[in-house]
Amino acid sequence: MTTQNKATAAPRGAAGEPVLAVEDLSVDFLLDTGAVHAVRGVSWQVAAGETLAVVGESGSGKTATALSVLRLNPEPPCVYPGGRVLFAGEDLLSCGEKRLRAVRGGAVSMVFQDPMTSLDPLQRVGTQVAEVLRHHRGASRAEAREAALAALDEVGVPDPARRYRQYPHELSGGLRQRVMIAAALVGRPDVLIADEPTTALDVTVQRQILDLLLSLKERHGMAVVLITHDLGVVAETADRVVVMNRGEVVENGDVLDVFEHPEDPYTRALLAATPRLERTA
């Protein structure tokens, strides 16, 4: 395949070395009814080979923070009154659109909650996976198709050659999510951001998708930022956790430490509300 585009690439950090850092980030939405302060002074970082979970209720600011990494919040009404998003030392909030397009889907990829609204209904799914390599790596049509088929196979899509030619509406929800993951990973990103990637799926498929993400993280050594409201998922998959409430970080630390010794009342309330299976006498 064509040599990786230097404008797109960034050196993958060694395990334990921060590859993405959000520093004192604030996100406002300037609406006709006034300013909404969605994110206020949020800071966290994730290292190569690490899974960071960002948790909180709906409206806590976790998705607005995640979308800010790649400047995917609509501008306007979104503005960034303060903070930085550092990828390999480069502030993405200060980048021009051309540079951002190079980073999005290449060095930093994102898997969204609902693939049906993220995949183009008018394009075959294989074409959408291959397009990542055509855009970010300068691959030929044949090279991109070969890599896309390999990516679909890697994420467990059965009969990749047949599925390659299908449209999103012809696939189940679980298969559509696998296609989204294939598109996110085909370019071998340094960071994968997964925003509630299993919410719309049944429990069995949820488990499969989470296991897949963890397996691919280990295989490729990338950093994963998992946005979720499910503390059970956090306990099973994450190395560190950030808890958000009303646009602010209220807890940030090792998963085991936070779960066993939560310091903030909001974190304690979330943990208390998490269902537990207990043996009865």
Rank of each mutant, 00 (worst) to 15 (best):
Y266I: 06
T237K: 11
G187Y: 03
S68H: 11
V54K: 07
V250K: 06
D195S: 02
S109K: 04
R40L: 00
D230L: 05
P168N: 04
R207V: 08
D239V: 06
P81F: 07
A147S: 11
R246H: 15
R268G: 15
P197W: 10
V234E: 10
E75S: 15
P275S: 04
M180A: 15
A238N: 10
Y80M: 05
E97W: 00
R99W: 01
A281F: 04
I193C: 09
E50R: 11
A14Q: 14
D28C: 09
E143D: 15
H169C: 00
V55F: 06
A53P: 11
V132E: 00
P197F: 09
T3Q: 14
G106Q: 06
A150N: 00
V242E: 10
V179M: 05
A130Q: 01
A107Q: 08
H37E: 13
R101H: 11
T3R: 14
Q45C: 05
Q45F: 01
G156A: 07
P275D: 12
G59L: 07
L133F: 06
A194I: 05
A144H: 02
L86F: 02
F112Y: 10
K98H: 08
G41M: 11
N73Q: 15
M1Q: 10
L212E: 06
A269S: 14
R178W: 03
E23A: 10
A182W: 07
G13S: 14
T280M: 12
P197L: 10
M110I: 14
R145Q: 14
G126I: 05
E146K: 12
H135A: 09
P74D: 13
T199V: 06
T51C: 15
A48D: 04
T117V: 09
E23T: 07
Y167E: 02
R104M: 03
T274C: 14
L212M: 06
E236W: 04
G96I: 07
G59H: 08
P81R: 09
P115R: 03
P77T: 11
L152N: 07
E146S: 13
P160W: 01
K62A: 11
G96Y: 08
D264L: 02
F87N: 09
Q128A: 02
L256F: 09
S172F: 03
A200C: 06
V103Q: 05
D159Y: 00
V103M: 08
R104N: 02
G59P: 03
G13I: 00
W44S: 03
A64I: 08
H136G: 06
S109C: 02
L31F: 10
G59K: 02
L212Q: 06
L93E: 09
L171W: 01
S118C: 11
Q177S: 01
T198V: 15
H169D: 00
D257E: 15
R145V: 00
G41D: 13
V42L: 08
L70P: 13
G13P: 03
A269T: 14
L192G: 04
T127I: 01
G83P: 08
L214Q: 15
T127S: 12
L25T: 10
V155Y: 02
R145C: 01
Y80L: 02
L25G: 08
D91L: 09
G13F: 01
R141A: 14
G221P: 08
L72D: 11
P262S: 10
L119S: 04
Q166C: 09
E263R: 15
V224G: 03
R134H: 05
L86W: 04
